[in-house]
Design a binder for these strands. Structure first.
Length: 190
DNA sequence: AGCGGGATTAGC
DNA sequence: CTAATCCCGCTT
């Protein structure tokens, strides 16, 4: 049912690609919410200038250095939460940011964008470190992805050469990918 | 103790 | 284009 630990132990870009089409399941007292992953970004490790682990091991990034298959949730801009999946073998700090979901079941609010999907699924820092191989928040295979395209990651212009790497993965043509995608498309001619 | 900044979003 | 708003990590 759920993805096994070995799946998450792979490099972040491999897990990222593998998660497109997967279903994120949030179990709440009030019911269950399910969304299909349509957009992610890979933060490949301490050498990746855009990865939080680039600045070393700190309180915030602690879970990224732990075993794969756990949630790394942090607060950004004082108001939005971002959900990541820890990847690679324990000790190699890397993660995949979930950026957008296609509603499948029990979803009321928008799940387009990393902050919005966390709000819609009631994901906050209390889930930081949660095991994604089961429990209140987990991932399982879903309808297989169609064509997957890659682009540079959003909002990491400061990362020098790493800002240009195509580590963002999304399902082509899917209307639920984040609005930022349109900005990127507009800005670049391709 | 204080300060600066951020893997975003909504609203002028 | 910019404000909002909080935690963290680093400097004093």
């Amino acid at each position: 049912m759920c993805f096994l630990r070995e799946f998450y132990a792979q490099p972040a870009e491999v897990v990222a690609r593998g998660l497109i089409g997967a279903e994120l399941v949030r179990v709440l007292p009030s019911g269950r919410a399910v969304g299909r992953v349509v957009e992610v970004e890979a933060y490949v490790g301490p050498e990746d200038r855009a990865c939080h682990a680039f600045h070393g091991r700190t309180g915030r990034t602690e879970v990224m250095f732990g075993p794969p298959g756990h949630a790394y949730v942090y607060l950004i801009y004082g108001m939005h939460h971002c959900l990541n999946v820890v990847t690679n073998p324990e000790g190699h700090a890397a993660a995949v940011l979930i950026r957008a979901l296609e509603p499948v079941e029990g979803i009321a609010a928008s799940t387009r964008g990393p902050g919005r999907l966390c709000k819609a699924l009631s994901i906050d820092r209390s889930l930081n470190g949660a095991d994604l191989c089961g429990g209140a928040l987990h991932l399982r295979p879903g309808r297989p992805a169609g064509i997957v395209v890659t682009t540079p990651r959003i909002g990491v212009d400061y990362a020098g050469p790493w800002a240009k790497k195509k580590l963002r993965f999304l399902e082509a043509g899917n209307p639920w990918v984040s609005v930022s995608e349109n900005v990127v498309r507009r800005g670049r001619r391709e």
